[in-house]
Amino acid sequence: MAVVTATTLAGNCAVLVALKRVRRAPAHYPLASLAAADLLVGAFVLPIAAARELFVFHLNWVICSCWSTLDVLCCTASILSLCTLGWERWCGITAPLSRARRARHARLYAVLVWPVSTVVAMPTVFIPSPKHFVPGEMPKACTVNTNIGYVFFSTTFSFYLPASVMVTLYARILCALASPPPIRAHRGRSPNKTVSAPKEKMTTKDASSSEGGRHLSIPGQNAVKREVSMVKKPNMSDEMLNRQRRATRTIVMLMSLFLLCWTPFFVMLPIDSLCECVRDVGWLWCTWLGYTNSALNPLVYAAASPTVRRALHASLTTSSSTRNTDVQLSPSVRRP
């Protein structure tokens, strides 16, 4: 529990610092929302969650209500941020050049995640939870709300609906990536036409560049050579597509971790609200497996996102590089 809490705090703080250092991209807004939600989980939810599992104590109604509300709010915001992140990746694959419009929508949806999560979390304060004590087990300091109506309401909007949206989005992303490149081209020239134009120019120039065995200097010859060298460089659309594929792999890993970590809890919670048949050890493992998702998300950023990885490396090396004041001089300015 201490390792999960410390990793959640340190990792998400590092990701937020890294996102502040890099240039804004459409995907950074839902990423920042996700890191902020996971950071709040580590700061306000996990300490009490660990204490209530390890010690026997009682808290007043206000503290328990705040803790329960933050628990549902932050976990829901984290899941909805993943859903927003999947939507942004789908837009990035299908319309890669509409960057400004994607950034506006991503910023709007990342902001809307929090009021929606608040609407899902606030009823837990006002809806009473039935007493849930299994014989032979010690009562917890703050119990989870197992009201049947609220459980099915919260699990639908916190997990099942976002998970269905994410699965649909990633299925469409895979279909878009599987289609041929001309279908996914966005108002661009065909690569064959781009390559053939400089070849025709070179043929004309070569025919007029030599006459009587002498080489004539043509003013436009350098420009033609520059065009040919530009053609040899990788196509910008291919480079953009490679970046989108790398980013999509990152989000697929996030979604896989999300399903692996949260599915047991959201299957256990409705079952227990109906029959009260889940033992304390089941609650412990399923709940903390879901919390582990908040600690694993930053590791996925650092391992799979080049932009965030470079910013994290710069953040970690800034302090050490600033200590080195020994600057090497070039040969022309060295002292004798």
Score class of each variant (00 low, 15 high):
Tyr29Asp: 11
Pro30Gln: 11
Leu31Gln: 09
Leu31Glu: 11
Ser33Gln: 07
Ser33Phe: 11
Leu34Arg: 07
Ala36Phe: 14
Leu39Arg: 04
Leu39Ile: 04
Leu40Val: 14
Gly42Phe: 01
Ala43Arg: 02
Ala43Phe: 08
Phe44Met: 10
Phe44Ala: 12
Leu46Val: 14
Ala51Asp: 06
Ala51Gly: 04
Arg52His: 01
Glu53Arg: 08
Glu53Lys: 03
Leu54Val: 12
Leu54Phe: 09
Phe57Val: 11
Phe57Met: 07
Leu59Phe: 10
Cys66Ala: 13
Leu70Thr: 11
Leu70Pro: 00
Asp71Ile: 00
Val72Glu: 03
Leu73Cys: 14
Cys74Met: 14
Cys74Gly: 05
Cys75Gly: 01
Ser78Phe: 03
Ser78Gly: 09
Glu88Tyr: 00
Trp90Arg: 14
Cys91Gly: 06
Cys91Leu: 13
Ile93Met: 09
Ile93Tyr: 01
Ile93Asp: 01
Ala95Trp: 00
Pro96Cys: 08
Pro96Gly: 10
Leu97Tyr: 13
Ser98Gly: 13
Arg99Pro: 01
Arg99Tyr: 09
Arg99Gly: 00
Arg99Trp: 06
Ala100Cys: 08
Arg101Phe: 05
Arg102Phe: 02
Arg102Glu: 05
Ala103Asp: 12
Ala103Gln: 13
Tyr109Arg: 10
Ala110Tyr: 01
Val111Cys: 10
Val111Gly: 08
Val111Tyr: 11
Leu112Cys: 14
Leu112Glu: 05
Leu112Met: 12
Val113Gln: 07
Trp114Ala: 14
Pro115Arg: 03
Val116Ile: 15
Ser117Asn: 09
Thr118Leu: 15
Val119Cys: 13
Ala121Gly: 11
Pro123Ile: 15
Val125Phe: 05
Val125Arg: 04
Phe126Asn: 05
Phe126Gln: 02
Phe126Arg: 03
Ile127Ala: 09
Pro128Ala: 10
Ser129Arg: 07
Ser129Pro: 07
